[in-house]
């Protein structure tokens, strides 16, 4: 009886709402037009996605399947060549070297950014250090500075003849390092990139730490767990979802880094990555004096596929976390 009265009440409310929304119209027709309204509301988003994501992506892929030069880019008529451009790019003497450099740049950056970020986050989270807030603010500087500024400053600090880094090494008796020569360039840009990425890791991991209940640590210390055990048994497992997001976002960001490398070396020597290579060819800059639209698109597409794989890994891990 009670249930029935509730049902009646509900349908009464529904009826009333229908009356409010559209006096005198049957319910079925209302449903029908709600679908249309839904589509209409989604339309701007769909148009946006189509226009700014799908269309450029399609154009990019189409470009990599045609042989463009400056003339055909302007006046049309670029011949369709299938996967010839991909074959050329992959077959180029430096392709695998650039892939290896990209991999090493990305992995070393991520590992160091994450470990340093985590160490700092734990340090600041523990508190008890008076200048924590000020220091934490200062650690954000790399993130806030325009990359053109930090890149130029790194280049200046790494000057082989009179840079401050070599002077500092000299104090400890080490010989000067030619930081930005073709051999050391990858190491140097990686160092600068690690410095750039630490604040991002610090901020995300710090907020992750704040979500771990303090009771757990209290309980663990009553049970006699030391600081090290608390870190590995409580902090790391509970930080896992945040860690995964941080690392995967970092991977995708680092994979496509152009700015810091370009400002420091223009992708010279070992500092050439897939992203800088593609950028140079797309705009006829750096070592690629000729504008190579198609080859740049092909490298860009390859990069995109790699990023997509990491994106899918992220989604899969996230779904598993939700289950």
């Amino acid at each position: 009886m009670g249930a029935r009265s509730v049902r009646t009440g509900a349908s009464a409310v529904e009826e009333e709402m229908t009356q409010l929304a559209r006096p005198g119209l049957p319910v079925t027709r209302r449903r029908h037009s709600t679908t249309w309204a839904g589509i209409a509301f989604a339309a701007p988003l769909l148009a946006y996605l189509g226009l700014f994501y799908a269309y450029p992506l399609g154009e990019n892929i189409a470009m990599s399947l045609q042989r463009f030069d400056r003339g055909t880019f302007v006046h049309g008529g670029a011949p369709f060549v299938g996967f010839d451009i991909y074959r050329e790019v992959v077959g180029d003497a430096k392709f695998w070297r650039v892939v290896a450099q990209t991999g090493s740049f990305t992995l070393v950056s991520i590992i160091c950014q994450y470990s340093i970020g985590l160490a700092l986050a734990v340090f600041f989270h523990r508190g008890g250090f008076r200048l924590s807030t000020v220091l934490r603010g200062m650690f954000l500087v790399p993130w806030l500075l325009p990359v053109i500024v930090s890149g130029t400053v790194w280049q200046w600090m790494m000057n082989p003849d009179n840079g401050v880094l070599n002077s500092a090494l000299g104090v400890f008796g080490a010989g000067p390092v030619w930081w930005l020569n073709s051999h050391n360039a990858l190491m140097s840009v990686t160092i600068a990139n690690i410095w750039l990425g630490v604040p991002f890791n610090l901020v995300i991991l710090y907020s992750g730490l704040q979500n771990i209940p303090a009771d757990l640590y209290a309980a663990a210390s009553i049970d006699g767990a030391g600081a090290w055990q608390q870190f590995w048994r409580i902090t790391m497992p509970l930080l896992r979802p945040v860690s995964i997001i941080t690392v995967l976002l970092g991977l995708v960001y680092t994979l496509k880094v152009v700015d810091i490398i370009w400002i420091m070396t223009m992708g010279a020597g070992t500092s050439q990555t897939l992203a800088t290579w593609s950028y140079g060819m797309a705009f006829g800059k750096g070592a690629s004096t000729v504008i190579r639209y198609s080859q740049a698109s092909a490298v860009g597409t390859i990069l995109l596929v790699v990023a997509l794989v990491f994106g899918l890994v992220y989604l899969a891990l996230q779904r598993r976390g939700e289950d």
Binding site: R22, W36, L46, A47, G76
Partner: peptide, 30 residues
């Protein structure tokens, strides 16, 4: 209300048509 909805929908269609037309016109090469 239904009229309004249709109206909105028509504008949306018109807008997206406009957008795709402009996108296409960028593609035509002199």
């Amino acid at each position: 209300m239904r009229k309004t909805m249709n109206h909105v929908w028509r504008i949306a269609v018109a807008a997206s048509l406009c957008v795709s037309v402009t996108a296409c016109s960028g593609n035509s090469t002199p």
